[in-house]
Amino acid sequence: MTSLEQLGITIPIVQAQMAGVSTPDLAAAVSNAGGLGSIGVGATDAAGARAMIRATRARTDRPFNVNVFVHAKAKANAARERQWLQALEPLFAEYGSAPPGTLREIYTSFADDAAMLAMLVEEAPPVVSFHFGVPAPDRIAALKAVGCTLIASATSLNEARQIEAAGIDVIVAQGWEAGGHRGIFDPTLADDRLGTIALVRLIGALSSIPVIAAGGIMDGAGIRAALALGAIAAQLGTAFIACPESSADEAYRLALGGEGARHTVMIDAISGRPARCLRNRFTAWAATNRLAAPDYPIAYDAGKALNAAAKAAGESGFGAQWAGQGAPLFRAMPASDLVATLWQEAGRLA
């Protein structure tokens, strides 16, 4: 079986999971077009994830990917969280609101979520992927036992080796250029910030399992380059944000065409973990704020509250407008048309 057959796809294009932006409609459209569509369920519970899986299945009989977050449990720090809320207070006040009194750990890691594991075993989606780390061996074994192909993201050779040792089938090499949350396993450690080209080559040369390239890829030329580097497929996220099937709001879509898309920023202020975002009001505030953000996802509780307050007052610049460095190359078209266009472009360069 070839690597693409293992994933059940005919076109080497993977739509990134993009929790909060990907939808069953988007994932199904990509899968029906021959690529691998994805839904991100890291921001919902087992019941919500089951509903998304079943909605995707109702729209496609092709394989699709279900992505979960495997982050370390947040370490609460009341003093740091209080300082953080105090620092944000003037921003809330600007929009006639006040920060929450306390912050919560709003998402449960798959590492600790027995209900999510049980649901995935019951539903047995064709592909399951992991971000921020790898789960315990018993969880991997349970998913493999029901036939799931497993993928995990790596930002370094060391993380790739951990993924390979865990028995996972495919590695996503996530370069520094990538939009959204950086998949680094331990954000307290130094980050070598390897770009997509170097990372794909390193992992491809020094690992024995297939590699998918991710980070800054927006068109057929990028896909062809990824394949030439030895990747079995290219993963694109930002390229699909403007598709009508995504759940990105109008402000997010407009921002993709604005000046902020030319100056994406890697920050941890929105969620508590490094993530690449369009330059906006939140990134400008983060550039001058010197406080350490609370742990992920505790900080996200404040970030979401601030965005809600600002949006209610007509300001869209505090959203989690994740995007990669290639953002200005986006094209707004139906997802199936985008997959066909991308592959036609790549074919012309072969």
Rank of each mutant, 00 (worst) to 15 (best):
A269I: 15
L36Y: 10
A269E: 14
G260L: 08
T2D: 09
E123Y: 00
C148G: 07
S3Y: 09
I9D: 03
Q174K: 05
A225V: 08
P100Q: 10
L4N: 07
R161W: 07
R59C: 08
A79F: 05
A76D: 05
V70R: 00
C277A: 13
I298S: 06
P90W: 03
A49D: 05
P24W: 01
A165R: 04
P137W: 11
W322F: 08
D268K: 14
H263W: 06
S38M: 07
A47F: 06
A323V: 09
P63S: 09
T283H: 09
G101K: 09
P137N: 12
A350T: 08
A286W: 09
D219T: 03
N307I: 10
S208F: 00
S207W: 02
E250R: 14
D112V: 09
V66H: 02
A231E: 01
T56W: 08
R273I: 15
T341L: 03
R331I: 13
V170H: 02
T44R: 05
A305F: 06
G20F: 00
G317F: 07
V146I: 06
A55F: 06
D112R: 13
G42E: 04
P90Q: 06
A226R: 02
A124F: 05
I39N: 12
P328V: 10
V41H: 04
L157A: 09
V21W: 00
A275V: 15
D295R: 11
V68R: 00
E345I: 05
A284V: 15
W285I: 03
A58E: 14
G258T: 13
G96F: 08
G324M: 11
K75T: 12
A93H: 12
A49M: 14
I11W: 00
A313S: 08
I13P: 00
D45Q: 13
G35I: 12
H181A: 01
D295S: 11
S22M: 05
L117E: 03
G48C: 05
A340F: 04
A173N: 01
A332D: 12
G195I: 09
A313R: 12
T2K: 12
I298Y: 07
L206E: 14
H263V: 11
N307D: 10
A205I: 11
I140M: 12
G216Q: 06
D301M: 04
E89Y: 04
A305K: 02
A305P: 02
A233F: 04
S246Y: 00
D249E: 04
A221T: 13
L88S: 09
A332F: 07
L202G: 06
Q321T: 01
T56E: 11
G101T: 15
G215F: 02
A47H: 11
T60P: 11
E177M: 01
S22D: 14
A320P: 13
W285M: 14
G96Y: 10
V41A: 14
F330I: 12
I168P: 03
D337Y: 10
